[in-house]
Design a protein around this nucleic acid. Structure first.
Lengths: 155, 155
DNA sequence: TACGTTATGTTATACTATAACATAACGTAT
DNA sequence: ATACGTTATGTTATAGTATAACATAACGTA
């Protein structure tokens, strides 16, 4: 499994980015929203909605599924979090709204996910859409496979 | 909404293809599997598992969720059907195992789905994977937007 | 402080999918 | 033809994912 050296730093940076983003855009970064985002940034693995619910239930007994899903909706709406459709799980985004679309590399061995945002992909998808007279709104691209570390471990 | 002129023909062809595929590969194309595949090919819209269950329950009272999911597993395994992860729905494939990967254009207005299999996409994704030292296993690409007909209807 | 808006609480339920074990159908070697 | 291993389906139960609908609370501002 791949590790970033000081993950707590990723987490803190992500929270700071979110704080600033919300401040700039006049959005409320409430304690609940902060808490959920922190939980999602606990690792680079995607997190399940009900795992978030379990975690916040420790301190907040009034948490119910809508508590989590509404918070996830908010975070997704502003690009702070993405849903991985192939996993029914959620992952933090380090650069909210920097790209139109975010694409993902998902390791099937260690579950780590990395974003991969290339203009060349956007361009090609746009081209494909155009060729089919299709107006693109949103695109899900999830590339599943083995990350570098997990390939090496197998060898 | 976009229509193919004689959809029943699509359906029949798909069944014939599946029949041959199974015959060639020594697979059992049982009545249940045929029935489910026919239901999926009733339209070019993706079909929900529980809608399939409702449909087959009309004639087969012993149908339960595993009946459907197991059949879908079989059909997916041999590329006769694909799951659309962003919709939790299933769609027939006209050319089982012709491509490594199938990609989709999903109309958010009329729900119609068309496959879009371009070598150029495969190539680019492979390149992106390589650049990240990632070994690709399976890729989900679902492009959501408006199909030609639905764009025109809006105009 | 009164009021509209946004966020959260609360209850209930809908929707999606699988585990685990039992029986039946099929294919084939004897 | 029959016995046996394999594959398919039946059956019961439950796990996992997500939303509807309505109530209350917190916030922001005129």
């Amino acid at each position: 499994m791949q590790h970033c050296q000081h993950h707590q730093q990723c987490q803190q940076e992500a929270i700071t980015v979110a704080e600033k983003y919300c401040a700039t855009h006049n959005l409320r970064f409430t304690p609940l929203r902060r808490r959920v985002l922190e939980l999602i940034w606990t690792s680079h693995e995607p997190v399940k909605a009900y795992d978030i619910l379990d975690a916040i239930s420790d301190t907040d007994t009034s948490s119910k599924p809508p508590t989590v899903y509404r918070t996830l909706d908010f975070l997704q709406q502003y690009g702070l979090v993405h849903k991985l459709n192939s996993q029914n799980a959620y992952i933090g985004c380090a650069h909210p709204n920097k790209h139109q679309q975010c694409y993902f590399l998902i390791c099937t061995a260690c579950s780590e996910v990395s974003e991969c945002c290339y203009q060349s992909i956007d361009t090609l998808i746009q081209k494909v859409a155009k060729k089919n007279n299709f107006t693109q709104q949103h695109t899900v691209l999830e590339i599943q496979g083995l990350c570098e570390s997990c390939q090496n471990e197998k060898a």
